[in-house]
Amino acid sequence: MKRIVVLTATRAEYGLLKPLMEKLKADPYYDTRIAVTGMHLSPEFGMTIREIESDNVPIDKKIEIVLSSDTPVALSKSMGLALISFSEYFEECRPDALMVLGDRYETLAVCCAATNARIPIFHLHGGETTEGAIDEAIRHSITKMSYLHFTSTEGYRKRVIQMGEAPDRVFNVGAMGVENALNTPCMSVAELEESIGFALGERYAVGTFHPVTLETATAGKQAEELLAALDRYGEIRYLFTGANADTEGRSINRKLKEYAQCHDNLCLVDSLGMRRYLSALKNSLFVIGNSSSGLVEAPSFKIPTINIGDRQRGRIAGETVISCQPERHAIGEAVQKAMDASFREGIKRSENPYGDGHTSEKILEVVKDFFVKERINIKKKFYDIHFEI
């Protein structure tokens, strides 16, 4: 039996990892431990640990690290808490591997603790680029600390190899979000409306807007531009989820709350959870904001995504994605395009570039092969690519 710790720190990350957690728990070969931290344990961000508990997912450890501030100092202090606390947890738990997803600052700190403890790291969604966010550097740092890599596209697989990771440890398995989108039983609009206490009607859009963390003091202004653009389409209902606990995320949430108090066509919730979020996407007119879900999950439903600003710049985008500047007129034009009948008809034939929906089973097949055949050796060699400059 092999002991694997699966880390989850945010609502979105948990939703993506859930199928993988379930398959690991069902396989007697693994002693699966779920470690919960970050935004999950913060009342300000919806205490989304309740969703994990309601899914009857056994939690091995709850580790609080989020401070009541989103300044750079506060985020660094949270990373320090994570490094200290997870160092102690790993000494107590002694796992054979740590499984992580993505590019969050708390994930980087946990991976540092795992590296010091000589615990192999299995990383999902490496090789991706988000040029407007600090996540870019964090993601690549996690890649260099990780042993097995599970990328969402072949292009990202090549980028991980370009970073010196051996090809026989890097696997293109597709995105977990696509698996969820294609396999999660969705709620009807009526059920969703009852669940959130807000009438969506037949014409509604789903929004999530996060700060662009490599920019300074732009979050509030960009949120204002977004809301000004939505004013032009007051006949549409809007369902927004709150911003993450990133620098300036709270300023975006304040703007959204103020707008919702004065406009009865916008509903803001801290978190929808995976099933409600995918249900909302499925029947929406379009997705708007700068969340990766607009590029990864939304294309599975053949609905337009309005991708605003630079947060996701550099990430692979399919035909359903309309990118625009964070300025009200540009956003308004993008909404107009998303509503255009010919555009909507054209994307019905589009393909999602992030895989076929069988991601978790591909990951577990690789992991078991490495464990059973004792192929894990954390003394990695740098894989050089020969080229001419």
Score class of each variant (00 low, 15 high):
358 H>G: 15
277 Y>T: 14
363 I>W: 02
364 L>Y: 00
357 G>K: 08
61 K>P: 09
36 V>H: 09
236 I>A: 03
14 Y>F: 15
119 I>T: 12
7 L>P: 07
69 S>N: 03
58 P>G: 04
249 G>I: 11
357 G>E: 14
311 R>N: 08
158 K>M: 06
107 T>W: 03
91 E>W: 03
170 V>E: 02
172 N>A: 13
292 S>N: 11
351 E>R: 14
63 I>W: 05
205 A>S: 02
89 Y>I: 06
263 H>A: 00
27 D>F: 06
247 T>N: 15
296 V>L: 08
121 I>T: 11
235 E>N: 03
76 S>R: 01
323 S>I: 14
23 K>E: 12
116 N>C: 13
376 I>D: 15
106 E>A: 10
246 D>Q: 13
272 L>M: 04
146 S>G: 08
225 E>L: 04
367 V>Y: 01
79 M>C: 07
59 I>A: 04
175 A>N: 06
26 A>F: 06
128 E>M: 09
123 H>S: 05
87 S>K: 00
4 I>Q: 01
230 L>E: 06
161 I>P: 08
125 H>A: 15
141 S>H: 01
278 L>I: 12
387 F>D: 04
111 C>F: 07
7 L>V: 14
280 A>Q: 01
22 E>Y: 03
223 A>E: 13
304 P>W: 14
44 E>N: 03
313 R>T: 13
320 T>C: 07
123 H>P: 08
248 E>V: 07
236 I>E: 00
289 G>H: 10
101 L>T: 09
364 L>F: 01
43 P>Q: 05
333 E>L: 12
145 M>V: 11
383 Y>V: 01
200 L>I: 09
238 Y>F: 11
217 A>D: 15
199 A>C: 11
168 D>C: 10
11 R>T: 13
288 I>A: 07
51 E>W: 03
363 I>Y: 05
301 F>H: 08
150 F>S: 14
101 L>W: 07
30 Y>K: 02
314 G>M: 09
14 Y>A: 11
345 E>T: 02
302 K>T: 12
230 L>I: 08
168 D>I: 04
252 I>F: 03
153 T>K: 00
114 A>S: 07
193 E>T: 00
91 E>N: 02
34 I>H: 13
281 L>E: 11
373 K>T: 06
236 I>S: 01
245 A>N: 12
90 F>E: 07
216 T>G: 02
175 A>L: 14
380 K>D: 10
384 D>N: 10
294 G>L: 09
306 I>Y: 01
117 A>Q: 07
305 T>G: 01
322 I>G: 05
359 T>Y: 12
177 G>M: 11
367 V>I: 02
90 F>P: 03
347 I>Q: 05
270 D>A: 15
266 L>E: 06
1 M>E: 09
331 I>F: 11
302 K>G: 13
270 D>I: 09
207 G>S: 01
179 E>C: 05
150 F>G: 10
127 G>I: 11
237 R>C: 10
147 Y>E: 08
65 I>S: 04
343 F>D: 05
293 S>W: 11
187 M>V: 03
169 R>T: 14
163 M>N: 13
175 A>M: 10
311 R>V: 09
385 I>Q: 08
256 L>G: 07
132 G>P: 06
51 E>P: 01
231 D>L: 10
269 V>A: 07
72 P>N: 08
344 R>F: 14
261 Q>K: 00
379 K>A: 15
232 R>M: 12
378 I>W: 06
134 I>D: 14
171 F>P: 11
181 A>I: 06
18 K>V: 14
